[in-house]
Design a binder for these strands. Structure first.
Length: 276
DNA sequence: CGGCAAACCTGCGAGC
DNA sequence: TGCTCGCAGGTTTGCC
């Protein structure tokens, strides 16, 4: 999926298109995504002003004037597309079609259907089971080396795996975990609990750097990611190590080669020479 | 409780 | 051209 930078970009795009507008219809073209849509899902989002669009970790939070909140997740392959006019022929995997009072059509597209949309309320949001356990937002002031070290304390597994745990830090996925570890010169195999002090500072800084850089370039993309402005593969972000097995290590001071290995069933790309 | 594989799905590229 | 295989950005579940 989209990791934090992509979800941030999508959320901002939705905000620009939908804030202060209302859905006049919500059409479910199938009964479920990852989860079944709840009873009355469409009606609960219809004819209410959209008051806020926020991101938390990799979740999109759409607030409505009556306190309803839709929690959306893009899974691995979810995307939104916005058209300024009605869409006559939705794609095969356009599972939800929203039409707005302002005349826009918003389509949620998700071939693998790992994404979902669920409803809660503003009052219940902080305690919601999907939201409550999530760790600190990495781009906020509340995230830094000491905070990261504290959350990794006692963890015996590899740091790469720990970074994917949303309870440790919010929004980091497989790509940016690899990139942040490379930038900070830390081996993905290092025992998570040994990250402290200067090393933790360096890793926290690297996480902030790779995420904010990706947001600046509009979120990065693989083949099926799209921005809310409708373009597919609109921008390309180049990664230093992710999916670059065999290339010379991009660290100028290093003569190593990028390798791939599998940790907890996920590909890790790293340089065994400069990551320690 | 920690850690890990499997499961949820479809699409795509590589290799034969 | 067409088949099969392996792999894909996430999260949850269930098993040791």
């Amino acid at each position: 999926m989209p990791e934090l930078p992509e979800v941030e970009t999508v959320t901002r795009g939705l905000e620009g298109a939908l804030l202060n507008d209302q859905f006049t219809s919500v059409t479910l073209r199938r009964k479920n995504l990852r989860f079944p849509f709840e009873e009355g899902f469409a009606e609960k989002l219809t004819n209410k002003t959209i008051t806020r669009l926020l991101r938390r970790a990799k979740y999109i939070l759409m607030h409505f004037e009556d306190g309803t909140v839709m929690i959306g997740h893009l899974g691995m392959s979810g995307s939104f597309r916005i058209d300024a006019r009605p869409v006559e022929t939705p794609d095969k995997h356009d599972h939800v079609i929203f039409k707005t009072k302002g005349g826009k059509t918003v389509r949620y597209h998700d071939p693998r259907r790992f994404g979902f949309m669920i409803l809660t309320t503003e009052e219940e949001l902080p305690d919601h089971p999907q939201i409550a356990p999530i760790g600190p937002e990495p781009l906020g002031n509340e995230f830094n080396g000491p905070v990261l070290a504290e959350r990794l304390k006692g963890k015996k597994g590899p740091i790469k795996t720990a970074l994917l745990d949303q309870k440790v830090v919010a929004g980091v996925g497989n790509i940016y975990a690899c990139e942040a570890l490379h930038l900070s010169g830390i081996s993905p195999k290092r025992v998570a609990g040994t990250i402290k002090g200067k090393r933790a500072d360096s890793l926290a800084d690297a996480i902030k750097a790779v995420l904010s850089s990706a947001i600046r370039s509009g979120g990065s993309t693989l083949r099926n990611y799209s921005t809310t402005s409708g373009e597919l593969g609109y921008f390309q972000h180049s990664f230093q190590v992710y999916d670059r097995e065999g290339v010379p290590c991009p660290n100028e001071a290093c003569d190593g080669t990028v390798k791939r290995m599998v940790q907890s069933g996920r590909s890790t790309f790293f340089c065994p020479s400069c990551q320690r």
